[in-house]
Design a protein around this nucleic acid. Structure first.
Lengths: 336, 336
DNA sequence: TTGTATGCGTTATCAC
DNA sequence: GTGATAACGCATACAA
């Protein structure tokens, strides 16, 4: 690793010498609300500008015991939904004077290593963005003492005392089922992705429950194993090829948009069926492509901004740090 | 902002007391390659484990003047291509013992602010990932002295002395045009997105040049203004509705996959034309969806891993820091 | 091999 | 309002 710089950054001490004051006065000039005369401040700022000085945040962090850095753990970069979340997250963090350390959780750098590393870096908080983490591998001491506070974004928390901010799945599925029922659909199907995810299981459960509440007890279950357009297409192909036109589902809800897009392609291209006339489709997450005229997919949008504002509020302490469930909104398009 | 911790982290000093050595011996135990007896090291490590000690990277950074943090500037989160790049980038950085600070460049936090901030944070390097930055706004002193070394990823560098790592556009377009010519296409069209991007202009220029080299001097130019499926669809719709079937293009190259997917949808769904029989399509970047059976889009893949390895090599100093142009590879599918 | 002194650049706290 | 002292936790250089 190369040395960071050939030329040293100017320090408060040097500015002090140039301005003819002590270095503490320089610090005061750069500390909002501290007691200093306008004249002193002016002279300091002049010297600082001339010497191109700016405070060293590293040294500040060491002294204040606050880095204003937040570690963001991500383990699935295949979900396009991550991108708009990262955009909003970084934007709002920066607006709050914080900065995101993006940590890739993978086989070589798992949650435990990442958490230990984040702790060594003295981050102010850790956001588990869509990643699962059970604390079995960490001792109580490791989790409790000195560890940065953790928050879970867009997924359930599996650890006591670790708050999560999630989209209200019950409300979402109720809205969706209501909408489908209003449209006259009565033979629903549900395509799930990874079966191990609790958020996934919850969506499916609510879907079947709400249909049951409307007197529809049979929900066809399709399974796509993983979240990709290909998997969605495969899953629906398998279903359609072993079902007869007479008793097919009339609407298919997919666990997320990428499955829905793949399924829609296959239904139209592979089987020559019409959407929504033969089979209606609903997704979840509202990807950018879902709104294009070719798909026009009815879907559900998570309250991204609200979720992120909430989690940042917990981090900075402006709102209470406890699990929150926020309502999203339906996006009705032509696929239903 | 809440105080970071209620319980202080244990320090080298405390471990030293517990192990019955001086704190410098503790440091040595945690410094690979330093001279220390096995016995001392064992005792230190034992005490460290008991007290749950790990070195404070913040203090280390202040002392060594190296944070092992790299700022990654991103300004366009709408391009799905960013996600796999971020995945590989974070993975490889972490493998090199570095960590990524993700900086969102937007109206409120522009390049100048971000660079100043990164400098204050003492990052070891700055990666401009797909963002444009001209140095007109910074004085020479600001850019030269003490600033962290900058590198441009997946875009041209517009600053002298700032190396860029890019996909070889000339080679790519040559391969593409060769392929299309081999397939028998002779009436090519090119759809561009944002006209201001130099990478964009370059692709178009090479495309027309290579066709000219094959005796095809006319290339139909479509313009999509921005990079979205919708824009791609709009652009091709406008073209098709004001052209007659007789003298239409027989192949359309789009500047990236998202344009191509939108265009393909419109060509098939909106006009009932067949791909590739009526019009063939080529994209660029190989998005995940492009490989699905519904699209099967011929495209070109940037050498992501090689590009990222190169830029990290420059950062850690294992390879010379100078602009590199790396060859990608064609992905031929059914759309041509 | 080990201990000591000093420095990294800032903030917190006190005396003036 | 300003200057001085101590502290943050670790690394470097030197002496033992």
């Amino acid at each position: 690793m190369r040395k960071r710089e050939t030329v040293r950054r100017t320090t408060a001490k040097e500015v002090a010498a140039a301005a003819g004051v002590s270095k503490w006065t320089v610090i005061r000039a750069f500390t909002p609300g501290s007691s200093i005369t306008d004249e002193s401040k002016r002279r300091v700022m002049e010297a600082a500008a001339a010497l191109n000085y700016s405070p060293n945040l590293l040294a500040r962090s060491l002294a204040t015991n606050s880095t204003r850095q937040v570690a963001v753990f991500v383990d699935d970069f295949r979900n396009p939904q991550k991108l708009p979340f990262l955009e909003t997250l970084t934007e709002r963090l920066q607006a709050a004077g914080l900065v995101a350390m993006l940590i890739n959780i993978n086989n070589h750098f798992d949650h435990v290593h990442a958490l230990l590393h984040a702790d060594q870096r003295q981050v102010d908080a850790v956001i588990l963005f869509g990643t699962a983490f059970r604390d079995e591998t960490l001792t109580d001491r490791q989790l409790g003492n000195g560890m940065p506070p953790m928050f879970v974004l867009a997924r359930d928390s599996q650890i006591d005392g670790v708050p999560a901010v999630v989209c209200d799945a019950e409300l979402a599925l109720r809205d969706i089922v209501d909408h489908l029922h209003d449209r006259g659909y009565r033979r629903p199907g549900f395509m799930s992705g990874a079966p191990a995810l609790s958020t996934a299981l919850r969506r499916r459960q609510h879907f079947t429950d709400f249909w049951a509440g409307k007197g529809v007890s049979e929900v066809e279950l399709l399974s796509a194993e993983k979240y990709s357009a290909e998997a969605g297409a495969d899953s629906v192909r398998q279903y359609l090829s072993q079902s007869t036109p007479g008793n097919r589902i009339d609407v298919l809800m997919c666990e997320n948009d990428i499955l829905a897009l793949g399924a829609m392609d296959e239904i139209r291209g592979g089987f020559g069926l019409r959407v929504p006339d033969d089979i209606a489709i609903v997704g979840f997450d509202n990807y950018e492509l879902s709104g294009s005229s070719a798909y026009s997919l009815t879907t559900y949008e998570q309250p991204r901004h609200e979720m992120i504002d909430a989690i940042i509020g917990m981090i900075v302490g402006s709102i209470k740090a406890e699990t929150m469930t926020l309502p999203g909104k339906m996006i009705v398009r032509k696929s239903t």
